[in-house]
Amino acid sequence: MIGTLHLLRFVPGDSVVHRAGSRSKILALTMLIFALSFDPEWSSVAVIWTFATLVFVGARLPAGALPRPPRALRWAMGVALVLGLLAGGEPTISFGGGSIDVGGLLFQLRFFGVTLGLLALALLVGWTTPLGQLPEAAAWMLRPLRWLRLPIDDVVAGLTLAVRVLPLMAEELSTATALWSSRPTKSKRALVDVVDLAATATTSATRRATELGEAMSSRGPVVVPVRSSAWCRSDLMVLAVASTSVAVIIVI
């Protein structure tokens, strides 16, 4: 499932969004996440999706980059919507001779709008930013915390590890899922198989993390350099659009 989302896979291009540095994109992403998290209303969801659409078009990303949600996820979302509808609540919609309470359904839809909106923003950063630039941006973002004597280098090293491991984990999970689907006796023990699959994925992830952790330990402390180059016009454009979006969320 993770594999079909194409997480952190760069799409080469020469757009304003591609030319913008990783720190401006991470900063814009952080601003929007904060704004949406503190005010997850319909208006905020609309602003986030408008912003995401603008960036997608502005980055000239092909439609083929859009993820195709796996059937299991679509089913889970459908079940959640049905449960939301059954939960009832205000407002009430009247039709014909009857009425239906759609408060729960609207709440569920808004929840999907927020979570998928955040996922879309993260995907956009991954599609327009080379993977290797992300730890550098994180180091820049976390730099003020050094004044509090927090171990920022360790945090960034951990982030670097996570960023490198994620595609490998996604590939191994896809492989394990494909192999599981070819096993003959699985329908009668579906829950047990899911647990076994999760345990295998955890074992695989732990092994990968251990290997990379040992490799990083043997190299000694990892200090990711903080880029000190000037902001370019593309950076300012990305930040201006993101700031405007945040301002609209706050004002509305």
């Binding site: 191994e172 394990a176 599981w180 096993r183 076994d196 295998t200």
Partner: peptide, 23 residues
Amino acid sequence: LVVQQTRLQLLRPTVSEELAAFT
């Protein structure tokens, strides 16, 4: 099919349970 990362296809905790999954 036996893949290079065989651990990914051994989903059950013991040998007997793994074999029982196939026959």
